[in-house]
């Protein structure tokens, strides 16, 4: 067992003009899938690039077990495998070659790497493109190949910066499966994603980062704890219309685009439905939905409060 500890990490760009990370502390255990969520520009990629040793922290420490990753970037690169958010340089590679050589550079033995490569090609359903050159691949398949390159020879820490970008819903599921499996094999996985609902099912713990600060951290269910005993009521309003006055039993609420999402106590479910149906009959709302609160609600509440007030 080992633990990655990020302690009070600060990173500024442009001589202090941009605070990309502003005192972030978190830890990831071996065997754990850890989600990193947050709006665009929150500082997620900046954080993981410091772990892998591509960027120098302005302040704070990063350790894995008793290894100081900041002072030993050579070892850091061996201990962390990485799928960057940026594209991978595989235009001239056949899919299987790209995965093989990535595994060999990570120190795998040829037979093991080839075996695992075949498994990944099969699990991610890439057989069709096995011998296709990167330049002829679609965006999503390229992304999946990059993902396979990062996990073919998994390091103690596997960092995936938005692995599901451009990937179709079916293969996204397959990818999440591989991610879970990485955890079971003993790696600690750091997963940067915008896909809150899918992350909810795949991560053990997660952190939400906003404007360089960690604003929430815990298991998906602990983060939803505040919402226990509550339901989410979502109203879809006609484009451009104003938010109608809300009954007092609707607690916290946010408006995102034409959607109003509010939290109501379970005991008010019937009243809520009646009220929403009334709005529909009057043409004030187009549709409504009542359901269990999701991590996305928590996410929108936490990160949306700021965008709503500013």
């Amino acid at each position: 067992m080992w633990t990655l500890r990020v302690d009070n990490l600060e990173k500024t760009y442009d001589d202090g003009a941009t605070w990309a990370n502003n005192g972030i502390s978190l830890s990831v255990q071996s065997g754990e899938v850890f989600g990193l969520l947050g709006p665009n520009g929150a500082g997620k990629s900046t954080l993981v690039k410091q772990i892998i040793g591509l960027l120098m922290p302005s302040n704070g420490s990063i350790t894995l077990g008793d290894v100081d990753l900041v002072t030993d970037p050579d070892y850091a690169r061996q201990l962390c495998s990485y799928l960057p958010q940026a594209p991978m340089p595989i235009t001239a590679f056949k899919v299987r070659e790209a995965i093989d050589i990535a595994g060999m550079i990570r120190g795998g033995s040829r037979p093991e790497v080839q075996k695992r490569r075949d498994q990944l090609i099969e699990i991610l359903q890439l057989e069709e493109w096995r011998d296709t050159l990167g330049t002829n691949l679609s965006g999503g398949v390229k992304r999946l190949v990059g993902f396979a390159m990062a996990v073919v020879e998994p390091a103690p820490i596997v960092i995936l910066d938005e692995p599901t970008n451009d990937v179709d819903p079916l293969r996204r599921r397959l990818l999440w499966q591989v991610v879970r499996d990485l955890g079971e094999r003993g790696s600690g996985v750091i997963l940067v994603t915008h896909n809150v609902l899918e992350a909810e099912k795949s991560v053990d713990r997660l952190a939400i980062i906003d404007e360089g600060k960690l604003i929430a951290e815990g298991t998906p269910s602990s983060l939803k704890n505040d919402d226990r005993g509550s339901l989410r009521l979502q109203l879809m309003l006609p484009p451009g219309s104003r938010t109608p006055p809300l009954p007092s039993y609707i607690g916290e609420n946010v408006r995102v685009g034409n959607n109003v999402v509010g939290v109501i106590p379970e005991t008010y479910a019937a009243e809520g439905i009646a009220w929403a149906q009334g709005l529909m009959t009057e043409g004030i709302a187009d549709e409504y939905a009542l359901g269990a609160t999701t991590l996305e609600d928590v996410y929108v509440r936490l990160t949306g409060e700021r965008s709503a007030t500013t």
């Binding site: 960057p84 940026a86 991978m88």
Partner: peptide, 18 residues
């Protein structure tokens, strides 16, 4: 070219001696 295409960082992240 690698820098332009954004692939430079990946090369830099490989676990090989510089």
């Amino acid at each position: 070219q690698e820098r332009l295409q954004g692939t430079y960082e990946w090369s830099q992240s490989l676990p090989a001696p510089r």
